[in-house]
């Protein structure tokens, strides 16, 4: 139960961090991504601050055998760079550059009450479902489970 409270507070703090940094605003994100306008480097400091804290404490946490409220760490083990990773990141980047919202701010934006936020969120969830549907179709087509990456 205490574990779930920490999960909840982590989500809350995450959103507050987005709000304080200005990353809840698509116009501020576009201010960084659009090199042709009045350039705003704020997003770099958000990335440095967040990844920096993570880097600092990760070195210490990874020496533990398990997290406080679970029996094991759920950390991705893969290290191969495959085509899917590159294609997916590229498509995500195009969508992010078009509008200025990525998944976290797309969710916090719902609370703002702007109709565009709801339109974006609905389209994003549709995209996630589309991926899931294609994956399930592919899984059914290949009963051995050996999906090719190509």
């Amino acid at each position: 139960m205490l574990g779930y409270l920490v999960v909840f507070l982590s989500g809350t703090l995450f959103a507050i961090g987005l709000g304080v940094s200005g990353m809840t605003l698509p116009q501020k994100v576009i201010g960084f991504l659009d090199l042709g306008g009045d350039w705003d480097p704020s997003l770099i400091l958000v990335m440095v601050g967040s990844a920096g804290v993570y880097l600092l404490f990760y070195r210490w946490i990874k020496q533990r055998s398990s997290p406080l409220f679970d029996t094991e760490f759920h950390i991705p083990a893969r290290s191969d760079i495959d085509q899917r990773l590159l294609v997916g990141a590229g498509l995500f980047g195009i969508g992010w550059g078009l509008v200025g919202l990525c998944p976290g701010p797309a969710m916090t934006a719902l609370v703002s009450g702007h109709p565009e936020a709801l339109i974006f969120f609905t389209a994003m969830v549709t995209g996630m479902y589309a991926h899931r549907t294609v994956e399930q179709f592919a899984e059914n087509r290949t009963p051995t489970g050996s999906m090719s990456d190509g």
């Binding site: 991705p76 899917r84 990773l85 590159l86 294609v87 997916g88 990141a89 590229g90 498509l91 995500f92 980047g93 195009i94 969508g95 992010w96 078009l98 509008v99 919202l101 990525c102 998944p103 797309a106 339109i119 974006f120 969120f121 609905t122 389209a123 994003m124 969830v125 549709t126 995209g127 996630m128 479902y129 589309a130 991926h131 899931r132």
Partner: peptide, 13 residues
């Protein structure tokens, strides 16, 4: 944009 962010982040995990 929303569709690309949704499908892209899932493909790219």
């Amino acid at each position: 944009g929303g569709f690309l962010v949704g499908i892209g982040t899932r493909i790219g995990t």
